[in-house]
Nucleic acid binder design. Structure first.
Lengths: 201, 201
DNA sequence: GTCAAAACCTAGTGGTCACTCGCTTTTCGT
DNA sequence: ACGAAAAGCGAGTGACCACTAGGTTTTGAC
């Protein structure tokens, strides 16, 4: 009867603090991977103690989940996946590649985490399986749309083209990260996509 | 005068032991990467102590160098890069992809190490920069050979095609490692290469 | 068979890791 | 301005890390 125990929410600055932590997490996991990246280093970057950070994310896996979620939010706002036009969707992918070339940190994060997560016991293993399923599925649908409109070169299989396009985008990132002057990711992507189409990109 | 100090070489079984260690190293670095893979686990796999292992490789970086060298030897014997015929060289690359599908451990090793090594302070950073320079260069030369013989589709730039082919091969590996049934690496590779050629692969 | 070097081991060293405990400080609804 | 919860901290804990010191065992040329 007396109880109630009103739980009270987080404070005003808390959201910004969590955001700071996640962005530092992106930086640290980018250059060291998840397994070797340390909570302590992330905490230092936002100027707080390790224990203080763990008040916001109760363990390292939870922090990783937060980082992946933040990255997803960011790239989702960039591509216009809502557009039902296949060509526009593909153009969205290409402009995503263009954008990526301006945020090496995010590219590095994706590269190293996706490689680490191929191990079945990695905490992000299922995340990346689902993510690739989604991206390849989305791209396949875009190519299928284009085929119906005769905008796809004959003999091009939408699913295969989608898998290859995604693979190309990933592979270009490694070469680019190793030597940024050696390669123009967007240019190579455009070239490949154009070779599949009957209409100009 | 008395001296001489004959240094005496390694024992008969030493070479085999070193080889065992390197193969265990491939396994461990494959699933954990270099930074998180531990010498101790490698030593356990060959049934010896950590200190015993360090008698053969005096530190972790040296062990990594040995692992990379072994992998290079193995894949070098598989492709016939000596063949001066461009088409045969490209066929060699495709058959390398076919072979890779039978050794997921080596594929995982390449994936995770190349991603880790994009960091400038990684001990294999320079190794991977040079390796990509070499592979892309080799592939470019193969395409150039083919162009002189009219076996390259018009409008195909050898250097660009080489960068893209290597990228495609790398990117396919990630998708394949995450879900081996989702993708046929060799088939996708063949499709892409064929689209560049005027002759059948 | 001798004996020195190679091979290998136990037992450390100092460091870092993720995470916990109990405490102080800050926030903010009342 | 009170008080309870949120935010944050210092000091741990136990596990693991790469690597070393100094010893014992094994090998193999003589």
């Amino acid at each position: 009867m007396t109880v109630t125990g009103k739980p009270r929410g987080t404070y005003a600055k808390t959201a910004a603090r969590r955001r700071e932590i996640l962005e530092a997490g992106i930086e640290v996991f980018s250059s060291n991977g998840f397994r070797s990246g340390s909570i302590r280093e992330i905490a230092e970057r936002v100027g707080m103690s390790q224990a203080g950070l763990l008040h916001h994310f109760s363990n390292k896996n939870e922090l990783l989940a937060g980082v992946l979620e933040l990255r997803d939010d960011q790239s989702r706002t960039l591509t216009n996946m809502d557009n039902p036009d296949g060509l526009e969707q593909i153009r969205g992918l290409v402009s995503l590649v263009e954008y990526n070339a301006s945020v090496p940190g995010l590219v590095e994060l994706h590269c190293i985490l996706s490689a680490e997560a191929t191990s079945a016991d990695h905490p992000a293993h299922r995340y990346f399986i689902n993510r690739y399923k989604w991206v390849v599925g989305f791209t396949t649908a875009a190519f299928e749309n284009m085929r119906h409109e005769g905008r796809l070169e004959v003999g091009v299989d939408p699913a295969s083209a989608a898998r290859s396009l995604v693979a190309l985008m990933d592979g270009l990132q490694v070469q680019w990260l190793l030597d940024k002057d050696s390669i123009d990711m967007a240019e190579e992507t455009r070239r490949y996509v154009q070779s599949l189409l009957t209409v100009p990109l």
